[in-house]
Amino acid sequence: MTPGSVRPITFSLGVASAATVVTLALGLGLARAMTRRRVRLAGLWETLILLPMVFPPTITGYLLLLLLGRRGPVGSALARVGLQVVFTPTAAVVAAVTVSLPLMYQSCKAALASVDRRLIDAARTLGLDEGRVFRRVTAPLAAPGILGGVALSFARALGEFGATLMIAGNIPGRTQTIPLALYSAVEGNRSAEANAYLAVTVGVSFSVIALVGLADRAAASVRGKGSEPTGRRR
């Protein structure tokens, strides 16, 4: 591998990390809002969040391009204050967040729903405010599930191709991620380079998902030793 071909790897890891942080904040926030109170048109919102999971990524990318392009509603507003998203690393993060949010949201929602309501109510009767109940009781109990969402989202963000190509472009040294570099390497008959990118992607994704499996099992064994297992009862 040439020194130039290491750049897509560091860039991709950066984009996937940034995207995962944003996705976690968004996914957890949305899941909490949807599980806590009755939201009007909840089904509609949820469908919108989940759509990128079933859309071909190119379609998601084209939609984002329509929104964020200089003629789009968001893009034109940003352009007025001198900001530009298309063809920047930010666009790569936006694409990765959009496609990984459904995974994060689903994981967080399932994790929050699995927390024993009685423990939450007990914390309330002991005088904790809602924020503290969430931070001290709900979130720690839901942590393994949330962590699973983090791992899935990171792996999905790392593999993102279609939407990224549309709004971040395929600009070597600036917005070229591992999947885009791999695609270019295959197209250009550079199989050694393509194989190296493949190995890195498999290695990173495999380790992230394996790590979460280990953490999950460790958490389960700790909980098993506690006084009472947290059930799925409502």
Partner: peptide, 15 residues
């Protein structure tokens, strides 16, 4: 770098 059709769509959307 992308396919010519993708590049055209990007220019149409003000990239």
């Amino acid at each position: 770098f992308a396919s010519s059709g993708t590049l055209r769509a990007q220019i149409e959307q003000g990239a």
